[in-house]
């Protein structure tokens, strides 16, 4: 999945790198807001983190993947609920954010799925999560860990 995303993003990287002078075309203008996650019970269950990813620049950016020391396999997943009320979850396609737009990773939709936790997620602590973009840029955010029953960044 990640590999395919990179391949898909490659022509865009080449195109943009030829056009603009800065090292990264767009991702340096990405701002991550309201990041939060829920505490885990131990390390056997996957965790999830949520945030808003805002593109404040003038170039379209494409979020291709995640890395974190907290989990061996962090991936962006998307929950979908069909007309019968059945929810399913699958790795999301790469996420393109137009200039001035933002994408919300929130309960019931896109989320950072943290598979194979290295450590338990303990309420009150934080962990670094790095978002990687198709232009090669990265944005790292410290994600606060809230209670298991948290409903949003403020609870």
């Amino acid at each position: 999945m990640t590999k395919r995303s990179y391949i898909n993003g490659l022509p865009l990287v080449l195109l943009l790198s030829g056009m603009s002078t800065p090292a990264f075309a767009g991702s340096e203008d990405v701002v991550v807001e309201n990041a939060w996650s829920r505490a885990s019970i131990g390390v056997n269950r996957p965790g999830a983190a949520y945030m808003t990813v805002r593109n404040t620049g003038e170039d379209t950016v494409t979020l291709t993947g995640l890395t974190t020391p907290l989990a061996v396999m962090p991936q962006i997943h998307e929950t979908k609920t069909n007309a019968d009320g059945v929810s399913s979850m699958a790795p999301a396609d790469e996420i393109t954010i137009e200039p001035g737009q933002s994408v919300a990773l929130e309960p019931g939709g896109l989320h950072a799925m943290l598979m194979k936790l290295q450590n338990p997620m303990i309420e009150g602590e934080t962990f670094p999560l790095t978002l990687t973009f198709s232009d090669g840029g990265e944005v790292t955010v410290e994600v606060p860990i809230l209670g298991i029953a948290a409903r949003g960044p403020e609870s």
Binding site: N44, R45, P46, G47, A48, S87, P107, G108, A149
Partner: peptide
């Protein structure tokens, strides 16, 4: 199911609310 990272804790916290 309890190994569910998104939907189930969200439902359980919605219901708790």
């Amino acid at each position: 199911f309890t190994y569910c990272p998104d939907v189930c804790p969200t439902t359980l916290s919605d219901i708790s609310g």
